[in-house]
Measured scan of single mutants.
Amino acid sequence: KTVKFDGLQFDFDNPEKALKFALEVAKQKGAEVHIHGDEIKIE
């Protein structure tokens, strides 16, 4: 899975870790997590 935000991109082999990371970043930024297939966007 790939996590994208602020023009940055982070690749994870483990989908659970990717989602956990995305949710943590979103919480800190006050943003929402959007999942599109293998891509997780924080907006």
Results as ranks from 00 to 15, higher is better:
1 K>V: 15
1 K>G: 08
1 K>E: 03
1 K>C: 15
1 K>W: 15
1 K>P: 11
1 K>R: 11
1 K>T: 15
1 K>F: 15
2 T>K: 06
2 T>I: 12
2 T>A: 04
2 T>N: 05
2 T>Q: 06
2 T>S: 08
2 T>L: 07
2 T>G: 02
2 T>W: 06
3 V>C: 07
3 V>K: 00
3 V>P: 03
3 V>D: 03
3 V>E: 03
3 V>H: 02
3 V>Q: 03
3 V>I: 04
3 V>W: 00
3 V>S: 01
3 V>M: 00
4 K>P: 00
4 K>L: 13
4 K>R: 10
4 K>V: 12
4 K>M: 12
4 K>Y: 14
4 K>W: 14
4 K>H: 12
4 K>E: 06
5 F>E: 01
5 F>W: 09
5 F>G: 03
5 F>R: 00
5 F>C: 15
5 F>P: 03
5 F>H: 03
5 F>V: 10
6 D>E: 10
6 D>S: 05
6 D>K: 04
6 D>R: 04
6 D>Q: 08
6 D>A: 08
6 D>G: 09
6 D>P: 00
6 D>I: 01
6 D>T: 00
7 G>L: 05
7 G>Q: 05
7 G>K: 04
7 G>E: 05
7 G>I: 04
7 G>N: 07
7 G>V: 04
7 G>H: 05
7 G>Y: 05
7 G>P: 03
7 G>S: 05
7 G>F: 05
7 G>C: 14
7 G>A: 04
8 L>H: 07
8 L>Q: 10
8 L>M: 12
8 L>I: 08
8 L>C: 14
8 L>A: 04
8 L>T: 05
8 L>P: 00
8 L>F: 10
8 L>Y: 09
9 Q>W: 09
9 Q>A: 11
9 Q>Y: 08
9 Q>H: 08
9 Q>M: 09
9 Q>F: 09
9 Q>R: 10
9 Q>T: 14
9 Q>E: 11
9 Q>P: 02
9 Q>S: 13
10 F>C: 14
10 F>L: 06
10 F>T: 03
10 F>Q: 03
10 F>H: 04
10 F>I: 08
10 F>S: 02
10 F>A: 02
10 F>K: 02
10 F>G: 02
11 D>P: 08
11 D>C: 15
11 D>M: 12
11 D>L: 13
11 D>Q: 13
11 D>S: 12
11 D>I: 14
11 D>T: 13
11 D>K: 12
11 D>V: 14
11 D>F: 15
11 D>W: 15
12 F>M: 01
12 F>C: 09
12 F>N: 01
12 F>I: 03
12 F>D: 03
12 F>W: 03
12 F>L: 02
12 F>R: 00
12 F>T: 02
12 F>P: 02
12 F>S: 01
13 D>Y: 04
13 D>E: 11
13 D>L: 08
13 D>W: 05
13 D>Q: 08
13 D>G: 03
13 D>P: 07
13 D>S: 08
14 N>F: 05
14 N>P: 00
14 N>Y: 03
14 N>S: 13
14 N>V: 06
14 N>T: 13
14 N>I: 06
14 N>L: 06
14 N>C: 13
14 N>W: 03
15 P>I: 14
15 P>L: 15
15 P>V: 12
15 P>A: 13
15 P>Y: 14
15 P>E: 13
15 P>H: 12
15 P>Q: 07
15 P>W: 15
15 P>F: 15
16 E>P: 00
16 E>I: 10
16 E>Q: 09
16 E>C: 15
16 E>S: 08
16 E>W: 11
16 E>T: 07
16 E>D: 11
16 E>G: 06
16 E>A: 09
17 K>Q: 14
17 K>G: 10
17 K>D: 15
17 K>R: 10
17 K>T: 14
17 K>L: 14
17 K>I: 13
17 K>N: 12
17 K>Y: 11
17 K>V: 13
17 K>P: 03
18 A>D: 04
18 A>F: 01
18 A>G: 00
18 A>C: 06
18 A>N: 01
18 A>K: 00
18 A>T: 00
18 A>H: 00
18 A>Y: 01
18 A>P: 00
18 A>R: 00
19 L>I: 09
19 L>M: 12
19 L>E: 05
19 L>T: 01
19 L>V: 01
19 L>W: 12
19 L>P: 01
20 K>R: 09
20 K>C: 15
20 K>S: 10
20 K>G: 07
20 K>Q: 13
20 K>F: 08
20 K>D: 11
20 K>M: 12
20 K>L: 12
20 K>H: 10
20 K>A: 14
21 F>M: 02
21 F>K: 00
21 F>V: 04
21 F>T: 04
21 F>D: 07
21 F>Y: 07
21 F>Q: 04
22 A>K: 00
22 A>H: 00
22 A>V: 00
22 A>P: 01
22 A>G: 02
22 A>R: 00
22 A>N: 00
22 A>M: 02
22 A>F: 04
22 A>C: 07
22 A>S: 01
22 A>Q: 02
22 A>Y: 03
23 L>Y: 13
23 L>H: 09
23 L>V: 08
23 L>C: 15
23 L>G: 03
23 L>A: 07
23 L>W: 10
24 E>N: 03
24 E>A: 10
24 E>V: 04
24 E>P: 00
24 E>F: 08
24 E>S: 07
24 E>Y: 10
24 E>T: 05
24 E>D: 09
24 E>W: 13
24 E>Q: 09
24 E>K: 07
25 V>S: 00
25 V>L: 13
25 V>F: 09
25 V>M: 10
25 V>D: 04
25 V>N: 01
25 V>R: 00
25 V>W: 09
25 V>P: 00
25 V>A: 05
26 A>E: 04
26 A>H: 01
26 A>S: 02
26 A>L: 03
26 A>K: 00
27 K>W: 09
27 K>L: 12
27 K>S: 12
27 K>Y: 10
27 K>M: 12
27 K>C: 14
27 K>Q: 11
27 K>V: 10
27 K>E: 12
28 Q>Y: 10
28 Q>D: 10
28 Q>G: 07
28 Q>F: 09
28 Q>S: 11
28 Q>C: 15
28 Q>L: 13
28 Q>I: 12
28 Q>R: 11
28 Q>T: 08
28 Q>V: 09
29 K>I: 15
29 K>N: 12
29 K>G: 07
29 K>T: 14
29 K>R: 10
29 K>A: 12
29 K>L: 15
29 K>H: 14
30 G>Q: 08
30 G>N: 10
30 G>C: 14
30 G>F: 05
30 G>K: 06
30 G>M: 05
30 G>S: 03
30 G>A: 06
31 A>L: 14
31 A>G: 13
31 A>E: 05
31 A>W: 15
31 A>Q: 09
31 A>N: 04
31 A>C: 14
31 A>V: 08
32 E>C: 15
32 E>F: 14
32 E>N: 12
32 E>D: 10
32 E>T: 14
32 E>R: 12
32 E>M: 14
33 V>K: 01
33 V>P: 03
33 V>A: 05
33 V>G: 01
33 V>N: 00
34 H>K: 11
34 H>A: 09
34 H>G: 05
34 H>T: 11
34 H>M: 10
34 H>E: 06
34 H>R: 09
34 H>I: 13
34 H>Q: 09
35 I>S: 05
35 I>F: 11
35 I>K: 04
35 I>M: 10
35 I>A: 06
35 I>Q: 06
35 I>D: 04
35 I>C: 14
35 I>V: 11
35 I>L: 08
36 H>Q: 12
36 H>L: 12
36 H>C: 15
36 H>P: 02
36 H>R: 10
36 H>S: 11
36 H>M: 12
36 H>W: 11
36 H>T: 11
37 G>Q: 09
37 G>M: 07
37 G>P: 07
37 G>N: 07
37 G>A: 09
37 G>H: 07
37 G>E: 08
37 G>D: 08
37 G>F: 09
37 G>R: 06
38 D>C: 14
38 D>R: 05
38 D>Q: 08
38 D>S: 11
38 D>V: 07
38 D>E: 07
38 D>N: 12
38 D>Y: 08
38 D>W: 08
38 D>K: 07
39 E>T: 13
39 E>A: 06
39 E>S: 07
39 E>R: 01
39 E>Y: 12
39 E>Q: 09
39 E>K: 04
39 E>P: 01
39 E>F: 12
39 E>V: 14
40 I>F: 07
40 I>R: 00
40 I>Y: 10
40 I>V: 03
40 I>A: 02
40 I>P: 02
40 I>Q: 00
40 I>W: 01
41 K>V: 15
41 K>S: 13
41 K>D: 06
41 K>A: 11
41 K>I: 15
41 K>L: 15
41 K>Y: 15
41 K>C: 15
41 K>Q: 11
41 K>P: 02
42 I>E: 02
42 I>W: 03
42 I>A: 03
42 I>G: 01
42 I>Y: 02
42 I>K: 02
42 I>P: 03
42 I>F: 04
42 I>N: 00
43 E>T: 13
43 E>K: 10
43 E>H: 11
43 E>Y: 14
43 E>M: 13
43 E>I: 14
43 E>P: 04
43 E>L: 13
